[in-house]
Design a protein around this nucleic acid. Structure first.
Length: 469
RNA sequence: GGAGGCAUAGCCAAGUGGUAAGGCAAGGGACUGCAAAUCCCUGAUCCCCAGUUCGAAUCUGGGUGCCUCCUCCA
């Protein structure tokens, strides 16, 4: 995996054999998430799934930032309290990412539930001379942490020279950053601390919570590229400053989502919310789209590109449908040796691609090859159940379990749906009668009618089948 | 000013020294009563220039264009 810290690909060696402890920076819950947030969630969900697939016992932690300036402002605008805003958007986040097939983390800690740990962390830094209190605020003393800049690969003086940081008179040094922020108003959300009422700075939460759940040192720390500096740099300063141990061994960062070649930003007014996209598009197509490009490369979004992704996903789904349909026409029997061989080659190729810095773009190519081979198999006259099943199992394993792409038809089910199905099947039976009579006009009329109902009828050598558009 | 990335077919995208994967779109063929689905076939002087090399999309130098970070931000 490519490690931002060393700027190269490195073999993955966990701290504890067989185990992976991984932390991903989660959302600040003051608004609905956009497609860029979704990319990080999806990409690192796949990293987590893949490591589990490769046999590691993975502990996956992703935080919620549920108190900060943005939440305070949002609460003010919405006429709600900060916890109310947080509650609303945590729920919304969960809905959005669940639709995208993202699994719940093992732990989803919230800042507001870890204030004591955070205060203790800050106190520890003060005790070591790595932080100082200034009029109710507490700042990290970057000058006392020589390794500062090692993640972003920026020399200290360059950082200083380029600093557009707001110069606060309270800071000893422009690069110092807040660990604790004094409450500005009496009604502002705040906690008591040794330095007066206030709240945690943004960076300290990840240091405190990752330490709480994963220990002083853990394996993987992930997030968006924009977090490299200053967020992750500051986390390293805090955590390594306190413990004297490396915080995380591997730092993974995903690239941005651009909209029609431009950065997504509020000022450009081109922010695409997952919530909105979900209304118009299959969320699985969105996931497929996000995985169709290597995670470190920028990915461009447009309706056309999403449509392409939708078509590509449909190809994989059709292959699975073809296999499921074939199951009915296959004779009993165990998987044939040549199919077993083909499947195992495909699996090996998939694994090799994923082993190479989670190359999902190439892994998907392997799935397309699997689809072709499966389709070739399924159009034979003599199919064996075991072989068909072997292909189905391959898709379940690689596409669904590892990449989280749901290919199987959705479990349907309302009573209303039953009557719809009955009607479709009645019409199909009627059409079959007409076809037997070679009454093509009637048969085609029925097919048109089914088409109007959103149903596509297919006459195959193994019988008629239908699917929804 | 500092740090880094990208430029591959109409669209998207892998590939980091040995005759350019894959998908979408398009065209042709097979199959079909006709379709649908599927299968087969068809497409690239890899941004430009110079260099290293037996050999470069891949390495080096120069150029052009686009992007990101250094500020809240996935």
């Amino acid at each position: 995996m490519y490690n931002t810290l060393t700027r190269q690909k490195e073999p993955f060696v966990p701290l504890v054999p067989g185990e992976v402890r991984m932390y991903t920076c989660g959302p600040t819950v003051y608004h609905y998430i956009h497609i860029g947030n979704a990319r990080a969630a999806v990409v690192f969900d796949v990293v987590r799934r893949y490591l589990a697939y490769r046999g590691f016992r993975v502990t996956y932690v992703q935080n919620f930032t549920d108190v900060d300036d943005k939440l305070i402002n949002a609460a003010r605008e919405m006429g709600l309290t900060v916890p109310e805003v947080a509650e609303r958007f945590i729920a919304a986040y969960r809905e959005d990412v669940r639709a995208l097939g993202v699994r719940e983390p093992d732990v989803a800690p919230r800042v507001t539930e870890h204030i004591p740990e955070i205060i203790a962390f800050i106190q520890g830094l003060i005790d070591k001379g790595l932080a100082y209190e200034a009029d109710g605020d507490v700042y990290f003393r970057t000058a006392r942490f020589p390794a500062y800049g090692k993640l972003s690969h920026q020399p200290l003086d360059e950082l200083m020279a380029g600093a557009r940081v707001e110069v606060s008179e309270k800071k000893e040094n422009p690069l110092d950053f807040a660990l604790w922020k004094k409450a500005k108003a009496p009604d502002e959300i705040a906690w008591d601390s040794p330095w007066g009422r206030g709240r945690p700075g943004w960076h300290i939460e990840c240091s405190a919570m990752s330490r709480r759940y994963l220990g002083d040192s853990f394996d993987i720390h992930a997030g968006g590229q924009d977090l490299i500096f200053p967020h992750h740099e500051n986390e390293i300063a805090q955590s390594e400053g306190l413990t004297g141990k490396p915080m995380a061994r591997y730092w993974l960062h995903n690239g941005f989502v651009n909209i029609k070649g431009e950065k997504m930003s509020k000022s450009l007014g081109n922010v695409l919310l997952v919530r909105e996209l979900r209304r118009q598009h299959d969320p699985m197509a969105l996931r497929f789209f996000l995985l169709s490009v290597h995670y470190r490369n920028p990915i461009n979004f447009s309706e056309e590109l999403l449509a392409q992704a939708e078509a590509g996903l449909a190809r994989l789904r059709t292959a699975v449908e073809n296999l499921r349909f074939a199951l009915g026409g296959a004779r009993e029997g165990a998987v044939e040796p040549e199919v077993a061989e083909a499947v195992s080659t495909l699996r090996a190729r998939f694994v090799a691609e994923m082993d190479d810095d989670f190359n999902t773009a190439n892994a998907i190519t392997v799935l397309f090859d699997a689809a072709r081979e499966a389709n070739q198999y399924v159009r034979r006259d003599a199919m064996v159940r075991g072989s068909v099943q072997a292909f189905l199992d391959l898709f379940a394993e690689l596409a669904e379990e590892v990449l989280g792409l749901t290919l199987a038809p959705q479990a349907e089910a309302s009573g209303e749906d039953d009557s719809f199905v009955a009607e479709v099947e009645r019409l199909i039976a009627e059409r079959q009668e007409a076809r037997k009579r070679k009454d093509w006009a009637t048969a085609d009329a029925i097919r048109d009618r089914l088409n109007q109902m959103g149903v596509i009828v297919e006459d195959t050598p193994h019988g008629v089948r239908w699917r929804r558009k």
